[in-house]
Write a protein that binds this DNA or RNA. Structure first.
Lengths: 115, 115
DNA sequence: CTTGACTCTGACGTCAACGTCAGGTTCTAG
DNA sequence: CTAGAACCTGACGTTGACGTCAGAGTCAAG
């Protein structure tokens, strides 16, 4: 699969895919002419990255955790990182719930006035 | 209350407080000498901003929603924004839960190997 | 073998939410 | 009244995840 198709199917830009490669997140074969050729699982990987980005992880962090996914090995340091990120995400979820409640307060108040 | 104390009590930098003012989020009185003097509720407001920032809202968006909080009035456009942001935050929470599950998969797999 | 779509590598641009520094002023404790 | 801590206004710097553009090469169809 060439880069344009991966981009379309994963919903990100061609530029983003080249950026992921630069950050060590995504690899590819090259054709004789030098163009990137991706395996089928590239689309799924990119979607996974998007989820982690949306959860607030950085490229560096994702790159550090990728060996856990790819090679199935987990060092003590990686295990600590996993726990740290888990805690961080749990905190973010809590903050989002709080924000949601604050917005709901506003919505309820607005509805009460207009009723 | 002067700016340094607001910063300490709300957990943000002095620079951030001046930035919030520039963005129209936070107002203050001035002393004869030109220094900012904040009301007591400033700390709570700043904490509120931090929650919304953490939830992914921009300064511009927060500024647009502030009238709902401050004046208690809500126009149709603001009501739409409230609903939009509510939906956006709900989506982000779902994405975070997905990411959390993916990390849990990795953690469980790591524990299974080391057990 | 040509054409047009696609891809390549730099390299500079962008945007938000501040950080940081310079050079000067204000406030408050003693 | 003086020292030093805190504050002021610009204004340039930073970071991450890309956007965008230039100039050139590659690929697939006809």
């Amino acid at each position: 699969m060439r880069i344009g198709e991966v981009a379309r199917r994963s919903g990100v830009s061609v530029r983003a895919l080249r950026y992921y490669e630069q950050q060590g997140l995504l690899t590819s074969q090259r054709t004789a002419g030098g163009q990137r050729e991706y395996a089928d699982d590239a689309v799924g990987r990119v979607r996974f990255f998007q989820q982690l980005y949306a959860a607030g992880l950085s490229s560096r962090r994702i790159a550090e955790l990728l060996p856990c996914v790819d090679t199935g090995t987990t060092t003590a340091a990686q295990r600590t990182m996993l726990d740290d990120e888990r805690a961080r995400i749990a905190e973010r979820i809590a903050a989002l719930h709080t924000a949601l409640d604050r917005l709901d307060d506003l919505i309820v108040a607005a509805d009460a006035r207009s009723a």
